[in-house]
């Protein structure tokens, strides 16, 4: 699904990613942990195609294609989903309208018919019911005035409706209360499947209790410095990142 080789990237002139190697296959869940400023969100942004993040070396293939040949919106229509660490507020943009437009952009790309208002509502109601959430948030402007937890929930609703193949969820568990964490985790688990891959960026072992990862990686100063199974997350929870050396990056 995703092959990252020796990926180097800068933000402005500053080198942030310094040779990332990572291979994610269909059906797998990977967790990426690491200290603040290590480059986790940068990795997500580079993969999603954000402007201002410059790839200086290395390659990424996604579903067998060169990812960097695709614009951000093409990647999204091709099934790459970035759950934002800080979802952006869109004043005046109605949540329902936005999500229907996004859904139809993806559907048309897949050769499916665009949904009209009624059919979209049906799809949405079904997904919302699966998630055990409600659609109140979608009646407002996207993310405007949402609490931190509500923004994260909204990301999960979007993910469920858009039905992507590769999901990079950047701290989707941060700022959630205990009940919301369970809901969000259940929502992520619903997305698992042989054709789907999930990359969870998180600071907390707790999420990984609900969403069992196949692999856990430690990202530090722009490189993956350790990889292992779920037990690695438990070790990090206890010992922190001291074992990987003092953090020069911060």
């Amino acid at each position: 699904m995703l092959e990252i080789q020796n990926l180097h990237a800068t933000v402005g002139d500053k080198p942030i990613l310094k040779g990332i190697n990572l291979s994610v296959k269909g059906g797998e869940v990977h967790a990426i942990m690491g200290p603040n400023g290590a480059g986790k969100s940068t990795l997500g942004n580079v993969l999603a195609g954000r402007e201002g993040y410059n790839v200086t070396d290395g390659s990424v293939s996604y579903q067998g294609k060169d990812l960097f040949e695709l614009e951000a919106d093409e990647r999204a229509r091709d099934g790459l989903f970035l759950g934002f660490q800080y979802p952006v507020e869109l004043p005046g943009v109605n949540g329902m309208t936005f999500l229907r437009m996004a859904t139809n952009a993806v559907r048309e790309h897949r050769g499916e018919e665009a949904l009209d208002g009624m059919d979209f509502l049906k799809l949405l109601k079904g997904k919302i019911a699966d998630l055990d959430m409600d659609d109140a948030l979608l009646k407002r402007s996207v993310n405007v005035g949402f609490s931190g937890g509500e923004k994260k929930r909204n990301e999960i609703i979007q993910m469920a409706v858009l039905d992507p193949h590769l999901m990079i969820l950047d701290e989707t568990d941060s700022g959630l209360d205990i009940d919301a964490l369970k809901l969000v985790s259940a929502g992520i688990n619903l997305m698992r499947g042989p054709e789907k891959a999930i990359v969870l960026v998180t600071h907390y072992q707790r999420l990984l209790d609900y969403v069992k990862p196949d692999f856990v990686h430690v990202l530090r100063d722009g490189q993956i410095v350790d990889s292992g199974g779920p037990e690695l997350a438990q070790k990090l929870e206890k010992e922190g990142y001291a074992a990987y050396g003092a953090d020069e990056a911060a």
């Binding site: 999603a48 195609g49 954000r50 402007e51 201002g52 614009e71 951000a72 919106d73 999204a76 229509r77 989903f81 970035l82 934002f84 979802p87 952006v88 507020e89 869109l90 004043p91 005046g92 943009v93 309208t97 936005f98 437009m101 996004a102 952009a105 993806v106 790309h109 402007s141 979007q158 858009l162």
Partner: peptide
Amino acid sequence: DADQLFYLQARGLNEQTARQLLIEGFIAD
């Protein structure tokens, strides 16, 4: 706003559509 544009594009909307949505959002109220 570049962040807003990127958010919309990261959900699959092309640049033109994303811009229009944001402009209409700006005047909506």
